[in-house]
């Protein structure tokens, strides 16, 4: 006589829910990591303070400023660049072609990358001659950067002016290759982020070199919107 006793064994009843829970947790955690990143970004923006001391003891002071978006006053091709402080939100990078509108902080720091894009303090400020280098996380602010195409318009808005660039070309480089982030005599903007990788940590970077098309320094105070 045969008897399928194991099916009714107490261990089966106790173990089954835990096993299913572990399975669901593993799958859910893996699947939710990307949406969680975006949620964190929104939370950061929603609850950001104007001036916030970093949570750790590094002494980093993050300064969040309002950036002028709709300036209607007079502009000039030449003007004064206002140098930001380390950790200061001083610009936004905007590209309607891919729906990009991201705050830009001065200096590279993990805390700043959580809040927006960062411009290397070893690169030229927008409005000055040279290469302005801006980067951001591929999982958050520059998730759609790879959709840029040659000819697309990218604008850098600051509180001293707006600078319009046109995407010239897409580039790929390794993280130990400084070629595209080095200073340049050309007036260009270089945007880059990690190449998308399921594990998140990629040595490859994708970027876009953009030519400066128009400089508009603000000379008045007219702001709308």
């Amino acid at each position: 006589m045969k008897d399928k006793k194991n099916r009714n064994h107490p261990a089966v009843h106790y173990a089954t829910p835990f096993i299913l829970l572990a399975l669901c947790t593993g799958v859910a955690a893996a699947a939710m990591i990307k949406p969680a990143d975006k949620l964190k970004v929104y939370a950061n923006i929603a609850f950001m303070d104007d001036q916030k001391l970093s949570g750790d003891d590094t002494g980093l002071v993050i300064r969040d400023n309002e950036i002028i978006e709709n300036y209607t006053g007079e502009t000039s091709e030449e003007g004064e660049v206002i140098p930001p402080q380390f950790g200061e939100l001083f610009a936004t990078v905007y590209s309607p072609a891919i729906g990009l509108d991201v705050p830009v902080y001065w200096g590279n720091s993990p805390e700043l990358f959580e809040r927006g894009a960062c411009q290397s303090s070893g690169s030229s400020l927008p409005g000055r001659d040279g290469n302005a280098v801006i980067s951001a996380h591929v999982d958050t602010f520059f998730a759609d950067l790879s959709k840029l195409k040659a000819g697309d318009t990218v604008k850098i808005r600051t509180n001293y002016g707006e600078f319009e660039y046109e995407v010239r070309t897409a580039v790929e480089f390794k993280s130990n290759n400084n070629k595209y982030v080095n200073p340049s005599e050309e007036n260009i903007l270089t945007l880059y982020t990690c190449k998308k990788d399921i594990l998140g940590s990629a040595d490859d970077r994708i970027g876009f070199v953009c030519d400066l098309k128009k400089k508009s320094f603000y000379t008045g105070n007219e702001v709308t919107g």
Binding site: L20, A29, H137, V181, T193, L199, S201
Partner: peptide, 27 residues
Amino acid sequence: LVADTGYDRRGFFALCGALIAAAFGGL
């Protein structure tokens, strides 16, 4: 000069993978 613009999730995904593998093993 080149910033780290991606989160290193190898540990996290390894943990998830281990959890799923253990669950399948238990099943």
